[in-house]
Design a protein around this nucleic acid. Structure first.
Length: 705
RNA sequence: GCGCCCAUAGCUCAGUUGGAUAGAGCGACUGGCUACGAACCAGUAGGUCGGAGGUUCGAAUCCUUCUGGGCGCACCA
């Protein structure tokens, strides 16, 4: 995740630049709706029943308020009543109008209800509490509409987005923190694609950075290996290269801190020299770096593929350097006055820019707060390189990478950057919107890149640049001890301890996945001794992936996850397997009932479900339908807020409501044909929406488990 | 010093433009497998929403302030 551990201390931060405050959500959703209309998408899109009826009701209410009270409300709050028996929508608008109209809220609500009259799709309206207006859907009609439509609106069609995620330094094995990044990013990609967007998935590879240099130092200085010897070292490894590097990286980091002061200074010098050789390229040191980083990168891709995570393109820093992306960015920035040459103060001799979030330097004297982009020795900083890379992402740089095929997925090829690539290749970059899944500690540099785009006049692009930030995954002190690390006394009371690649302190991604599979395997063996080994393995893997992905997605982005094996290996309650189990139950129903979900949904056309869906008993069935009808609403919200956790919660609530329904109503033994048809259709709708939503979360539901 | 984030049940977390009695999972306790699979369901107990002010008809949510945690502010990447 582009975290370069450095020897001078951590660089952590949490500005949450991309976290949109709730008040922005509404307008964002409106913007999507406008897009929807502009794109000419069919308004009668059946699957959006909840959202569609909501919009219709709000439009009608606006008309009533205008005609009857001559008022125009900026925003019309709409929510769901605390209990389903009160209806599907609740409107507190009378409270807001009470002062303006100098009338009691209840009185206003009554007048509004009277003025509303009949509204298509609604069974009625009533005043509740101190002045709420509750709206009831015509459940029979709504259920018919929900069962008939399975398509999700492609509101995002025509938008080309780019998501950058994973971006692990290719010098050691991936750990749990990287898993959070990749799972968040991959899930968000699925959400964008579900909304119809065209999405490129990029995994940025810092193959010329300090971390790779440290591995090279380890090999050349500690192990005393030449390029050829590194080759045979790799061939002769008894463990995987990323695991071997995990230990070597920790050992090398340690080595810098050992010895006399003079020795340490010498070692730092070696490190810097190694870094410069790698950056320059065309020498034995850089060849070793290339060899190792490429091998580790392949391992990362394999690890992520275990979780169903794939990439389209791997841009590398080596090409950003060697193809001189920065030179072009530098010209633009100088020409537009974003960069200026500092002649005084602490940054004398550097090219600097105004730091994001600071005011224009008032009066005279140098802006000591400015961000250095080009050092006084003429070399460019990290942010400078990132600015160039992001100009490329938006198609504003005027230069492209070369492309080579690198990693073959069953359905497509993943390409990697090259100085000179193949003549025939797909086109990457030039996106309209970008999302950078990067941990929250890097929001300052991210903000500076955005500031540079804005300064260059690319305000539209800056608006569509999202730092998709998230908090780190740390370990609980107990987990750290389980792993065999000596936890200092003062850390034992802390809620969590940060992982550290330099110390070799962390839970490796593949170890965790292996552990999960081992746990699910033993369960599956116990529950399904009749199945063949191959089949059992498939099921165990699906459950393990489901458990892991859900675990990483259930927390909102700005919550620090204090990792513990006990939580991550849990399969009960709010977990992936619980959701998968709900789907397995629906599958079992249709298998035993010798019918299909499709048939059950089609049968709804001739079922008069209205009467059955009334009353308390009806509520317990309707609850499932109502939740299922909200999937598209949640998809919109997740995209607008860049928060996949809302959809994870939605899936969980749907599974929970289905489980309750399942216990309460026995479907296959139901005697009444109409009621049985409705119950079957309920299971079908729950299954359809669960499978859809789980698919977006990257979780598959096996036939049995 | 400047800036950002966090504080909600014993634990881990939700809480959607400010709205009706603040929710879930885990843990504890009670009950439910001769009905579509118990990786499940039903129920009980558990809360000064960190403290104090303020805005509002209404505040966990917005504002101010304080306390306690975490993080960021390089000519590192």
């Amino acid at each position: 995740m582009r975290v370069l551990a450095c020897s001078f201390g951590a660089f952590l931060e949490s500005r949450q630049a991309s976290f949109r405050p709730p008040d922005k959500i509404v307008s964002k959703i409106r913007c999507f709706s406008a897009f929807h209309r502009a794109a000419g998408a069919p308004q009668q899109d059946i699957d959006q029943v909840y959202l569609r009826e909501q919009k219709q009701l709000l439009a009608r209410l606006r008309a009533v308020l205008r005609e009857k009270f001559e008022v125009e409300l900026e925003t019309l709050a709409i929510e769901q009543p605390p209990e389903i028996k009160f209806g599907e929508y609740a409107l507190p608008l009378a409270f807001e109008l009470a002062r303006r109209l100098k009338k009691a809220p209840r009185k206003i609500a009554e007048e509004v209800v009277a003025a509303l009259g009949e509204v298509e799709g609604f069974a009625g309206f009533e005043v509740a509490g101190a002045g709420y207006i509750n709206a009831r859907l015509d459940r029979g009609a709504a259920a018919k509409a929900i069962s008939a439509g399975g398509e999700i609106d492609a509101a995002g069609a025509g938008t080309h987005s780019l998501v950058e995620h994973t971006s692990i330094n290719p010098n050691k094995a991936a750990h749990v923190g990287h898993l959070r990044n990749a799972i968040l990013g991959d899930t968000f990609v699925r959400l964008l694609r579900a909304s119809g967007q065209t999405v490129d998935v990029q995994n940025y590879i810092d193959n010329t950075g300090v971390q790779v240099a440290d591995i090279v130092v380890g090999l050349t200085q500690l192990e005393r290996l030449s390029l050829d010897q590194v080759r045979s070292w790799m061939d002769g490894l008894s463990e995987r290269i990323d695991y071997a590097c995990w230990d070597l990286y920790a050992k090398t980091s340690q080595w810098y801190t050992l010895g006399t002061e003079a020795e340490q200074a010498e070692r730092k010098k070696i490190r810097l020299h190694t870094l410069h050789e790698i950056e320059a390229g065309g020498n034995e040191t850089s060849a070793i770096a290339e060899l190792i980083s490429t091998a580790v990168l392949r391992r990362h891709l394999e690890t992520m593929l275990r979780l169903g995570i794939e990439y389209d393109f791997l841009p590398r820093e080596s090409e950003i350097l060697h193809l001189h992306f920065w030179d072009l960015a530098f010209e633009q920035m100088k020409a537009r006055g974003v960069l200026y040459f500092e002649t005084e103060g602490k940054n004398k001799g550097c090219w600097v820019m105004k730091r994001a979030g600071t005011e224009e330097a008032a009066g005279d004297g140098p802006d000591e707060d400015a961000k250095v982009i080009v050092r006084s020795n003429g070399t460019v900083t990290y942010v400078g390189k990132d600015i160039a890379y992001h100009l490329w992402k938006f198609g504003l740089l005027g230069r492209d990478f070369g492309y080579l095929p690198f990693f073959k997925y069953p359905s497509h090829e993943c390409w990697i950057s090259a100085e000179s690539g193949e003549a025939e290749h797909p086109h990457f970059g030039g996106a309209q919107a970008i999302y950078n899944v990067i941990d929250s500690r890097q929001s300052d540099p991210q903000a500076n890149v955005i500031e540079a785009l804005r300064g260059l006049g690319y305000t539209e692009q800056a608006e569509h640049y999202t730092h998709f930030s998230y908090e780190m995954v740390a370990l609980t002190p107990r987990c750290a001890e389980e792993l065999g690390y000596a936890v200092p006394e003062e850390d034992k009371a802390r809620p969590y301890i940060e992982v550290s690649g330099r110390k070799g302190f962390g839970v490796k991604a593949d170890d965790l996945i292996d552990k999960l599979i081992a746990a699910t395997s033993s369960e599956v063996v116990e529950r399904h001794p009749e199945l063949g080994e191959g089949e059992r393995d498939e099921i165990a893997k699906a459950i393990a992936v489901g458990a892991l992905r859900y675990f990483m997605l259930k927390y909102t982005r700005n919550t620090v996850i204090a990792f513990d094996f006990k939580d991550a290996l849990s399969f009960e309650g709010e977990t992936g397997p619980y959701l998968q189990y709900a789907v397995v139950r629906t599958r079992s129903i249709f298998r035993k009932g010798e019918t299909t979900p499709e048939a059950a949904l089609a049968a709804m056309a001739s079922v008069d479900a209205g009467p059955i869906l009334q009353g308390e008993d009806g509520d317990s069935i309707w609850q499932v339908w109502l939740r299922a009808a909200k999937t598209s609403l949640l998809l919109e919200q997740c995209i607008a807020t860049a928060e996949p956790a809302y959809l994870a919660k939605h899936a969980y609530l749907l599974a929970q409501e289905f489980s309750t329904f399942y216990r309460k109503h026995h479907i296959l033994t139901e005697a009444d044909p109409a009621r049985k048809a409705l119950l079957l259709a309920t299971a079908a709708v729950a299954q359809r929406e669960l499978i859809r939503t789980l698919g977006w979360l990257g979780i598959s539901a096996p036939e049995v488990m």
